[in-house]
Design a protein around this nucleic acid. Structure first.
Lengths: 222, 222
DNA sequence: TCTTACTATATCAATATTGATATACCTGTA
DNA sequence: TACAGGTATATCAATATTGATATAGTAAGA
């Protein structure tokens, strides 16, 4: 990895902007693309987009021109330069950028034994499943729209292409697997709750140590 | 969400440190926990761990004492205070922290039509599958170790508990779904490559527009 | 007229995060 | 002796990221 700037870390935002700007656009346009088309793998705020566009232009990877807008203030439209395209290709050829994943909700679950009551974990997992299902629904709606609409006029940043569609599929399969995991976990919680009820106390269920371990689906957690 | 500090964003590192420090430990200990036990949902470097521990102590959520080490320089051992425990519980009760996910490799794939040759995409996906499979193997090895070892002496930050095991399961299901997605995508690439070969040219395969769309497994991408 | 909403750019403070670096103790080994 | 490797703390510069804020034009509707 050749770094664009000293101290540069292999984060991808700069390269994503280069990739999106193969078709000219403004910072405002780009923000919609993050929110509407690629939120399943990256997000960015204005506060990061505008300064990054500036820096990429300073370094000659983008160039911009100001155009009048039909609906508001002037637009500063950015386009990829030859140098920018080279940097984009270099990044695409640098091998898969597999990095650490971060899940705040898993961190919460990891420590949730501190609450000492599995009913709270159950409520947490139910809420989580709801949130993930909403997300999955949004992705599947896009998938349906993409696979249904044939012959549509090509849109800017269209998700119709093979590569774009493949990233959408990963989002769907990955979030889908998390929903299944919620079900597996909820089932395991209910089994534990039932056992605790049978044993007598009914309300307080401090969690007994390790897992029993099983490969049968739905019983990996018991 | 009540923010710990002005301008505080809902990132989880501070709370993760509080959770891990229910059992006393040093910054160095914590780093191993990130690397060895919870890398499937969070990671952190020394450069972030030490300053964060300092700030948490300043705010009264942690306290520390210096102890001689058996194997090196003195150890600064941190422990959770009552206030720290309260903040941890508040975070656990604040609902699932579902945030945007970021995948550098999906960003690369999204723009890879720029390379104009599906063989390059194929090589990329093969490399990615390899990396993900390695990762999956590491998680499954931990799962096996956890489900096999019964009656072991309880370790610091043991992964034996139900909640901890559930987070491991999500890692396995989630990475597993991504490996399956690699297979689905590689199969789709091969079908396209075969079609292009049959059509004549053999080498250059610019990608024709949209996807055909199908629900049959392995054919969602064609 | 006033307000709301959308378009559009830009900057700020604060925190988050990485990767490099400096220091220093201890143990085993070449 | 010298060096490698593991234990341990700490700081730095640079970049990444969030969320709030300021400014302004346009258009629709109360």
């Amino acid at each position: 990895m050749i770094y664009l700037y000293p101290g540069h870390t292999p984060m991808s935002l700069k390269h994503i902007l280069l990739g999106l700007l193969r078709e000219p656009g403004t910072g405002y346009d780009l923000k919609s693309v993050f929110d509407e088309r690629i939120s399943h793998f990256w997000s960015a705020e204005f506060g990061q987009i505008y300064p990054t566009l500036n820096r990429l232009e300073e370094h000659g990877l983008l160039e911009s021109r100001v155009e009048p807008s039909e609906k508001g203030p002037n637009r500063r439209v950015y386009t990829l330069t030859g140098e920018g395209r080279q940097e984009l290709l270099r990044w695409l050829n640098s091998g898969p950028a597999v990095g650490a994943e971060r899940f705040g909700y898993l961190a919460q679950l990891y420590f949730m034994d501190a609450l000492g009551d599995l009913h709270e974990t159950r409520a947490f997992m139910t809420a989580l499943k709801g949130r993930l299902n909403e997300w999955l629904g949004r992705l599947e709606a896009i998938e349906t729209a993409v696979t249904t609409a044939h012959g549509n006029a090509p849109e800017r940043y269209s998700d119709g292409g093979f590569h774009q569609f493949a990233t959408l599929r990963m989002g769907i399969l990955s979030i889908g697997s998390k929903v299944k995991w919620c079900d597996e976990t909820l089932a395991a919680i209910d089994r534990r709750l039932a056992r605790a009820n049978a044993a007598g106390t009914g309300k307080e269920c401090r969690i007994p140590g390790g897992s029993t371990g099983s490969d049968k689906p739905g019983e990996a957690l018991s």
